[in-house]
């Protein structure tokens, strides 16, 4: 079925679909933003003070500061993932919102591109929320943490794309458990969110080096703690490649699913 493999046809027609999702979000914006702020703030405070009291310094900085960079990435990843998995699946499979849109002069390429960018936008808010907490708590100054903003966008793009593949394959909500168990949770534990990767045995360290969340944290951590990230281009490219390739695979799979 070669027609499913044709490259994505991207256009500005995605915008009304993105806007549709934004309008739905706007209806519940206040609880959503509070959730973005409160949830990770509690997390950081709990772990930061609880563990931070025992650990004092990790990687040469207070544990709370160490945790902050990981949490920015982790929170962005989670937000993007939940949006394309649960909300995306609802729109595709349960509410048949995509079917309705496809009867208008839009294509599946437009719809999926809109979902990708919408989940990226939404995860930007989650990442920004952590950044605000970092600033308010004085864990880092504005300065180079501003570079985290474009990085958050790229992280969101990466995990939105990856999540869309799972959504495209999913027969039901239950299927998402596999992705969380086999991909998301391992990344949280292997990619340096809570502790430095060099604490892991060498085998796991080499696995970690390939995971997208590692690329994100390696870039984010120096930006929070001060100092220059190393091998910036490689890590940026890795995040972009994960996102873009996943988006293409998701598009092929979704075409096979809906346009057969």
């Amino acid at each position: 079925m070669t027609r499913f493999w044709r490259p994505p046809a991207l256009s500005l027609r995605f915008y009304p679909v993105w806007r549709r999702n934004f309008l739905v979000w706007k209806k519940l914006a206040i609880p959503a933003i509070l959730g973005n702020l409160a949830d990770p703030a509690l997390y950081m405070l709990g772990l930061g003070y609880g563990l931070g009291g025992l650990l004092r310094e990790v990687g040469g900085v207070p544990y709370l500061t160490f945790l902050a960079a990981g949490t920015v990435c982790y929170s962005t990843m989670n937000s993007a993932t939940f949006e394309v998995l649960y909300s995306g699946f609802s729109r595709m499979h349960v509410q048949k919102t995509w079917d309705a849109i496809l009867n208008a002069p839009l294509t599946l390429d437009d719809v999926l591109f809109a979902e990708l960018l919408w989940a990226t936008s939404k995860s930007l808010l989650s990442g920004l929320a952590i950044l605000v907490i970092v600033w308010v708590m004085g864990l880092a100054g504005l300065g180079q943490t501003l570079w985290l903003i474009p990085l958050i966008v790229l992280i969101g793009f990466c995990f939105s794309g990856m999540g869309l593949v799972v959504t495209a394959l999913s027969p039901s909500y239950d299927f998402f458990m596999y992705y969380f168990t086999l991909a998301i949770t391992p990344m949280v534990l292997l990619c340096g969110v809570f502790y430095p990767v060099d604490q892991l045995p060498p085998v796991l360290q080499s696995v970690s080096a390939w995971l997208p969340l590692t690329h994100a944290i390696v870039l984010a951590r120096p930006l929070v703690q001060g100092g220059a990230p190393q091998q910036v281009a490689t890590h940026l490219l890795a995040l972009f490649a994960y996102g873009a390739l996943s988006y293409y695979i998701a598009l092929v799979l979704t075409r096979r699913r809906l346009l057969k």
């Binding site: 009304p16 739905v24 209806k27 509410q95 048949k96 919102t97 079917d99 309705a100 208008a104 002069p105």
Partner: peptide
Amino acid sequence: PQLDNLDPDFSVRENLMVYGRYFG
């Protein structure tokens, strides 16, 4: 379509508005 796929997150008016935008 055979099965209603109205947007449950929107009101009646918003459904029409949002759908019209898909036509540019």
